[in-house]
Design a protein around this nucleic acid. Structure first.
Length: 595
RNA sequence: GGUGGCAUAGCUCAGCUGGAUAGAGCACCUGCCUUCUAAGCAGGCGGUCCUAGGUUCGAAUCCUAGUGCCAUCACCA
């Protein structure tokens, strides 16, 4: 039973016996550092049931608790705040209880409660950029956090591998490609294909300008440009299963997948199952037909199928075109159902998609509910803000993007330069150094992105590089490395790590603060899971690390002559490093032994 | 125009279900490496929490209205 549960029961008992009043709940908060105490009971809300002066009520309550609860050693009242001082024995006891636990803070998986997390979901016509990085890091991290909170998780994505935009890069490659391949150019496959997506747009604009110069109206020109016509014809051929088009499509997509695989590997993300739009885009149609019979949808005169959501405050939304072909919504309905068919233990799904699609997902979830699927009650759109540049929105077509591979390389380079300047790694081999630079560079990038509340938009200025000092990934990695160094030395010196600390032990202020911070880890994981927010975890780890560094500067660990003190300090350091490691693991960030 | 999101220090961000004097980092200024890694620590400077009302013992937080920025409202995805 937690101390808070004990205190809550006792506070209620006290109010009942002293004032004869019943409390439904008690408000606790950690005592602010400027006051003496550990836990604060807020007296104000009690005024609703107890008449009187809050300070006097606090005094009486404090006296009762000091008497009735072993852990409470003292108290003081400031205005309406009752600050309780807890005995060191309580903290020592807590620490003895967790220090040997291997997965502290993590909850055992409950398989009955599975959830599917979708993220990444790229188009196969261009390389991944900074926007995808945010998506990938968020989705991956949320999946790991959900796992740690006790859920079974399947990571997935839906690959947008068909449609007019894919045909555009295919047409451009046919026109301007001269049989260039990743093999004969040495270019990464997704980069090569992306170049033709840009080339298409360029040629398209030239053609429009030419038509306009010939006196054609601009709007008509935009529809009549030959290269666009060509792409549209190619899409029709693709849907008809034309052998030549299909073969080119498979070939170019394969190049892209090879490129993506490298990017994902460098980013450190992975998937349990892949879905392809080309496999699922037809599936939703049956469901729509079925829903039409049930009266969930209705058909307009031209044959198109719609759903009326005006009662829910939304509009009418199309779910099938008049020519019977699927729209985006149709495909998403089908994909959702397909997933539950494939994994019947799924109770819910999380879609990691940018906030520009808030409306789409609102509608999708509503449709699935109306179709009567029980799991539709547990769908969540993990909506995140865009990553914008100082110049505005990133646009692949116009080449104004921060490329994912380039950015990751830049980060590694910066980490190397910084590290070489400090020159602490003489004994490392070339390979070990490379691995470390990458770890630190990626740590900086990942932390930079994940520490921000997902729903806020990020302004990324490529001119000002991501920091490596202060509230950053490398700062936390550095603290971890420093602890590892202490642990190596402690091990050589024969410090006994398993030693149980006596409950009569008098804690140093900094030791107590560290234990308090460690206590918060399990609830932080749960909070991050229910809020789908890695930022909460990132900020927790930062606070823990700040607390540790302060402890590290103020007290001597290995230099301590009192054996029990030394043992506690080494044990504390070890536990802190374990929590840093597992907390960072949930953010997808690795930690180094040295740096 | 309708709908949704955001607005906190010069800059980038925290601030959990309303609680005590609004916190970090960067930048700028001071100190601290012959002692466990200075990518660190300690301190200083810096705030009309967008504006105006309201609810409350108490509002950065909740409600209403307004302002600004972003997104969205296609037989595009």
């Amino acid at each position: 039973m937690s101390i808070q549960t004990v205190l809550e029961a006792k506070v209620k008992e006290a109010i009942l016996s002293i004032f004869g009043a019943e409390l439904t709940s008690v408000e606790f908060q950690p005592t602010r550092k400027d006051f003496e105490g550990d836990v604060t009971v807020v007296v104000f809300p009690m005024l609703r049931v107890v008449k009187g002066n809050p300070v006097q009520i606090g005094e009486q309550l404090g006296a009762f608790l000091k008497d009735a609860v072993d852990e409470v050693s003292d108290f003081n009242v400031v205005k309406g705040f009752l600050n309780l001082v807890l005995r060191d024995a309580f903290y020592v006891g807590f620490f003895n209880g967790i220090k040997e636990a291997s997965n502290y803070g993590f909850v055992e998986e409950r398989t009955a409660d599975a959830v599917m997390v979708e993220y990444s979901s790229p188009n196969t016509n261009k390389p991944l950029h900074l926007g995808h990085i945010r998506n990938n890091l968020l989705g991956y991290s949320v999946a790991e956090i959900l796992k740690a909170s006790g859920k079974k998780v399947y990571k997935t994505q839906i690959i947008n591998d068909r449609g007019i935009h894919i045909c555009k890069s295919m047409v451009a490659w046919q026109r301007f490609g001269n049989d260039k391949t990743p093999e004969n150019t040495g270019l990464k496959g997704d980069k090569l294909v992306g170049n033709y997506y840009v080339a298409f747009d360029k040629a398209y604009k030239v053609e429009i300008a030419k038509l306009v110069a010939d006196g054609v109206d601009e709007k008509i020109a935009a529809k009549e440009a030959p290269i666009l016509k060509e792409a549209q014809e190619m899409l029709i051929k693709w849907e008809a299963g034309d052998a030549e088009v299909t073969s080119l499509w498979k070939r170019m997509n394969a190049w892209v997948y090879e490129g993506f695989a490298i990017t994902y590997k460098n980013m450190g993300v992975n998937f349990d199952k892949l879905y392809y739009e080309s496999d699922t885009y037809l599936l939703g149609k049956d469901v729509v037909a079925d829903g039409l019979r049930k009266g969930v949808f209705f058909k307009k005169e031209d044959g198109s199928v719609w759903i009326d959501l005006t009662d829910e405050g939304l509009d009418e939304k199309i779910v099938l075109r008049s020519d019977g072909t699927a729209v985006y919504m149709t495909q998403d309905i089908g994909t959702a159902i397909q997933r539950v068919n494939d994994y019947p233990d799924i109770k819910g799904m999380v879609y990691t998609v940018g906030n520009e699609q808030d409306y789409h997902f609102k509608v999708l979830f509503l449709i699935l509910k109306k179709l009567g699927f029980s799991w539709a009650e547990h769908l969540h759109h993990l909506s995140y803000g865009m990553v914008d540049l100082p110049s505005g929105k990133m646009k692949s077509r116009e080449g104004t993007v921060v490329d994912a591979d380039d950015l990751m390389n830049d980060m590694t380079t910066t980490a190397r330069e910084l590290s070489e300047e400090l020159g602490k790694l003489e004994e490392y081999s070339h390979e070990e150094k490379q691995e470390l630079y990458k770890m630190v560079g990626m740590g900086a990038l990942k932390y930079y992105i994940l520490k921000v509340d997902p729903k806020k938009r990020i302004l990324f200025n490529p001119e000002e590089s991501v920091d490596f000092q202060g509230n950053t990934g490398p700062f936390i990695q550095y603290t971890y490395a420093r602890i590892q160094s202490i642990l190596r030395k402690a091990n050589n010196a024969g410090v006994v790590l398993s030693r149980t600390i006596e409950t009569s032990f008098k804690l140093h202020e900094k030791e107590k603060e560290l234990i308090k911070q460690l206590q918060l880890f399990p609830e932080t994981i749960q909070l991050a899971a229910t809020n789908f927010s890695p930022a909460l975890l990132a900020n927790y780890v930062y606070d823990l690390v700040k607390e540790f560094n302060s402890f590290y500067q103020q007290v001597s660990i290995l230099g301590e002559t009192d054996e029990q003190k030394k043992a506690l300090r080494v044990q504390l350091s070890q536990k802190v490093s374990e929590v840093i490691e597992s907390g960072f693991k949930l953010l997808g960030i690795n930690v180094p032994e040295r740096m």
